[in-house]
């Protein structure tokens, strides 16, 4: 098989796995952050605190910010 010798299957496999995990992870964290923010807003309006949700949203925002910085570092190292 010609393809078996000329395609870099190792790099391709890494791209598939890492991009799948990275993409789903970022979407999950960002979506959980939105849930935290919305729940915090609901609790705050009801006068029931909801600081745990605010903390959750903050942690998610920090993780996303870290990912963005990491992405820029990857571009710069290329």
């Amino acid at each position: 098989m010609i393809l078996a010798t000329i395609v870099d299957w190792n790099a391709l496999g890494k791209v598939v796995v890492y991009s799948f995990v990275g993409s789903v992870a970022v979407t999950t964290v960002f979506s959980v952050g939105i849930v935290g923010l919305v729940r915090f807003d609901d609790r705050r309006r009801a006068g029931a605190g909801g600081m745990a949700y605010a903390l959750l949203a903050l942690v998610c925002a920090l993780i996303v910010a870290f990912v963005v910085v990491e992405a820029i570092v990857i571009m710069a190292k290329k």
Binding site: D8, A11, L12, K14, V15, Y18, S19, G22, S23, V26, T27, F30, S31, A71, I74, M75, K78
Partner: peptide, 25 residues
Amino acid sequence: TAQGFSAQSSGAAVILTASHFGYPL
């Protein structure tokens, strides 16, 4: 907007991962 975000973040993840591993797409 959820689809827009998912498409863009997935696209960015694939492009940057591919670039990192030397497999430009």
